[in-house]
Write a protein that binds this DNA or RNA. Structure first.
Length: 481
DNA sequence: CGTTATAGTGCTAGCACTATAACGGTGCCCTAGT
């Protein structure tokens, strides 16, 4: 049967849809033609269907590498809802006995979810090597580039894993990656760039308006002023757990809105509870660190505010991309105070080992206890285990640091630029604005500071019957009067 | 950069004050002893 006909039939059979969304058909056909495929589709465009449907058209096991336990659990549940029973996530939520059972019955499964760390377990690999893998999938593939070189080194070893598995057909999916990152992903996975099909869609989301507010004093109060006038629900991102908690409390006390904080120290049960409440519109505002967001499928988030400067344009677009999935107008607001870059800069320094640390550790063959952060220690230990020389390790760390700083400087420039914010962000991804949306950014056609003033708005409503952009903005973003 | 913790100073000999240093974010895996 023609693949085009086959996938259409399977789309109906397995998912009950009659038509594909943008990009999906191209991706699946590419994979069925035997191409390794790198997929960049904006958030909410149905990336998971790409590998799932491909899997249904092929004989053998689909292995999905996923960064978070909660993501795996979600995907397993969703597949089960479609009636699929041959699906499991092998992770630390299973006890040893359950893991062994699943591994012993791998050939009876269609979809297996795993973390990169789990793939480092030799016993897991020994089982995977014995079965036929039809598709090796890397979900949220930007993690390879974002985390592989420091925070989660096992992401850098997926190439070796592929080699051990005899280079299975591979699909890597992400929503935000520059050309450089896409190349990094392919290289890291040991995929031949020539024989790879890339399906790339724009990172632009025309219903999200970009705005920056320069705060030279009392940022917290300015934040509260803003959110009181904005439509809910929304997310506020922070670079500090403590401040996230403090502001959540402040919002509750000063405005009476339902606000909760979310970061890595929140116990697992509460995390799930907060997510659920947020999804069911019982929480107006989440004050979160970067821990919050991946896998959050909520369509009606109206704004994403950044209290602190994000570390990279990639991170910013990922976080901002969580609002407005329903296509309704939404707001990405950055609160910027000159000097904000320092927090991120410090965090970056704290992540990567210094040259001194590397030299000492290589000389002694171990890490000096108590002298470095957990991520620094982890990374150095990984270098010591690898074949890399001190010089190579030093160079890698140096260029990594420069790269991270460049990403940060781009965000500082974004905050300070007086040209179009949307164009500025897209430029980082080597894209141009195609068709300026009605609500573009605070440098084009929305004056965020002005239009939030209630008096101004009321006056305008009386004076001007004709809708101007600011008036439209008010209707779209602000609470009804 | 702004905030907080710690160490040091000096007369109130135990507390108030000040100078200085440290810190800030993401997750997976598992082991062993209760």
């Amino acid at each position: 049967m023609d693949n085009r006909v086959l996938i259409k039939k399977n789309l109906e059979n397995y998912f009950g849809y009659t038509s594909f969304r943008d990009g999906q058909e191209e991706v699946i056909l590419s994979a069925l033609d035997g191409n390794h495929t790198l997929v960049m589709l904006p958030t909410g465009m149905g990336k998971s269907l790409c590998y799932q449907l491909t899997g249904y058209c092929l004989d053998g096991l689909v292995v999905i590498v996923s960064p978070l336990l909660s993501l795996m659990q979600d995907q397993v549940e969703q597949l089960k809802l479609t009636g699929e029973k041959r699906v499991a996530a092998i992770n630390s939520l299973m006890d040893a006995h359950e893991k062994e059972w699943v591994l012993n019955h791998l050939s009876e499964y269609k979809f297996i979810f795993l973390s990169p760390e789990m793939l480092q377990q030799e016993y897991v690999m020994s089982y995977l090597e014995k079965v036929s893998i039809s598709l090796f999938t890397i979900d949220e593939a930007h993690c390879i580039s974002q985390w592989g070189l420091d925070f989660r080194p096992d992401y850098s070893d997926l190439g070796i894993i592929r080699q051990q598995l005899k280079f299975p057909l591979t699909m890597a999916l992400t929503a935000t990656a520059t050309e450089r990152v896409r190349e990094e992903i392919l290289t890291s996975l040991q995929i031949d760039h020539e024989n790879t099909k890339q399906v790339i869609y724009s990172v632009d989301r025309s219903n999200i308006a970009f705005s920056t507010l320069i705060c030279d004093h009392d940022k917290k109060q300015q934040l509260i002023n803003q959110i009181q006038k904005l439509k809910k629900p929304g997310i506020i991102y922070f670079s500090s757990k403590k401040i996230a908690e403090e502001v959540a409390g402040l919002i509750r006390n000063k405005t009476g809105m339902a606000a909760e904080s979310y970061h890595s120290d929140i116990v697992a049960e509460d995390k799930i509870k907060i997510q659920q409440q947020f999804i069911h519109d019982e929480i107006d505002i989440i004050c979160a660190t970067s821990a919050f967001g991946m896998g959050i499928n909520k369509s009606n988030i109206r704004f994403v505010i950044h209290f602190h400067l994000p570390g990279s344009p990639e991170a910013y677009l990922q976080e901002v991309g969580r609002c407005g999935r329903d296509g309704e107008p939404s707001l990405a607001l950055l609160l910027y105070e000159p000097g904000d870059g320092m927090i991120q800069l410090r965090l970056q320094e704290y992540t990567l080992p210094t040259i001194d640390m590397l030299e000492y550790s290589y000389k002694k063959g171990k890490v000096l206890e108590g002298s470095c952060s957990p991520t620094q220690k982890q990374l150095i230990e990984n270098y010591l285990k690898s074949d890399l020389s001190v010089e190579a390790a030093k160079n890698q760390v140096k260029s990594r640091m420069i790269y991270k700083q460049q990403q940060l400087y781009y965000m500082i420039d974004y905050a300070e630029t007086s040209s179009c914010k949307r164009a500025f962000l897209l430029h980082y991804f080597n894209e141009k604005v195609s068709g300026k949306p009605p609500l573009c950014c605070s440098n084009c056609n929305i004056e965020i500071n002005e239009c939030y003033k209630e008096t101004d708005l009321k006056q305008k409503k009386i004076v001007e019957k004709e809708k101007n952009p600011e008036e439209t903005l008010k209707e779209l973003f602000l609470i009804g009067n």
